[in-house]
Write a protein that binds this DNA or RNA. Structure first.
Lengths: 215, 215
DNA sequence: GGAGTATATGAAGAAAAGCTCATATTTTGG
DNA sequence: CCAAAATATGAGCTTTTCTTCATATACTCC
């Protein structure tokens, strides 16, 4: 992974001592705080390092530029999210499709809700990036996990897994994100989640009916 | 200066002569082009005015700052989109809910697909804005139109209109956006649209069943 | 303890972007 | 045709931001 480093997106140095690991963590934390309090446009290297309690030079020792910092932060977050989704997928293997959908939405929703402000801040920070391999990679990685899960339902033909996977993931990720962008009250959010689950399940059932007919 | 407009988001001057209207249009067009060719981070007042073939000063005569320009551009786009959705809603009043959903998705989808690159560029440009009343206003406006439409279905109880409206709009807008963010091939896009319509309809049917039972 | 490596510092140069204003040109209306 | 209003200009001032580098401090391990 040291080779192609497309746009200087790689860390300059990798921390080896414990204090530097602390430093890098502090920088990430500071980035989040600045993102939340000042917004993406006012996020500068100086502000971040100030907040982190380190000098600008230190920051540049680990991140070759601002973009790399944002990318790294998002990569970190997306990685954690992917791990959780993967865990859910593994856990639900072999279950009925409706259970899978429900668990998937629950996982995704919870991960986003835990820190709603951060979720939104990160959404915006990635959008500010011109290049966007991150989301693409995330989609591929998580797509593989859900795909393998849907192939192992107890109540759906495996040959439909591709269509099911594409549709469900698109709808779920999209709806969740949109739900966050509107600023809704708690009751609406909760109702929305329930409806989303219902909707996905209703579609799956209609799917089963169709395949039964053709069978 | 006039009364301190909220965040300087208002146009400084409103064009009255025809040549100035041409100028403003050119600025909007240039903004789009720069957005597409250079991306949001490299979009600067200088670059935009250069592309528009006017001087920077001229730009600042109509837009007090860069943010105002982006806001105005998006407002313009969202207004056009809202009008189309409103037209569809008006046209579909009294029809079966499934027809409504289908028409709504079709309208939204077409509007986005017509200029997919622009759609994506605008998504990013708004996201880069720290403050975001635009989307909120759009959601409210379009929400009113769809709400009124769903209240007039031939096959659904009007008291469920609120839940139906919130759920469907969230799912549709979210899914459409997500579909654009992944870079999918034509066949996948088409399949996705069909599935989305199916899914919404399946949910509506399940909804009808439930309300029939309680009735 | 000391040589060598890792990490931290922050003043300062360079680049970029935002924005203004004094001046010039065009249009309008009487 | 002329004065007032509208519109256009763009050099250049200001502010912000990025980034580097020479130097200093801390750690590791023999």
């Amino acid at each position: 992974m040291t080779a192609h480093a497309s746009q200087g997106a790689k860390p300059r140095k990798t921390p080896v001592q414990s204090r530097s690991r602390v430093t890098v963590d502090a920088i990430f934390e500071a980035t989040i705080q600045v993102l939340l309090s000042e917004g993406m446009t006012r996020l500068t290297t100086t502000r971040v390092s100030e907040r982190a309690g380190v000098s600008v030079g230190t920051m540049y020792q680990y991140f070759p530029n601002k973009q790399a910092l944002i990318i790294a932060l998002n990569a970190r977050y997306l990685n954690a999210l992917a791990e959780r989704v993967e865990a859910t997928c593994a856990r639900m293997a072999g279950q009925p499709a409706a259970e899978m959908v429900s668990a998937l939405i629950e996982t995704y929703w919870t991960a986003k809700t835990e820190r709603a402000d951060l979720t939104q801040a990160l959404y915006r920070s990635v959008a500010a990036l011109d290049n966007n391999v991150l989301m693409q990679d995330f989609a591929t990685r998580v797509g593989a996990a859900t795909m393998s899960m849907f192939r192992q339902t107890s109540d759906l033909p495996p040959q439909d897994a591709t269509e099911i996977n594409l549709t469900l993931t698109t709808v779920i990720y999209g709806a969740v994100r949109n739900a966050f962008e509107r600023e809704l009250g708690m009751e609406q959010i909760t109702a929305l989640k329930a409806s989303l689950i219902d909707m996905c399940c209703a579609w799956l059932i209609s799917f089963q009916h169709r395949t039964q007919m053709t069978a």
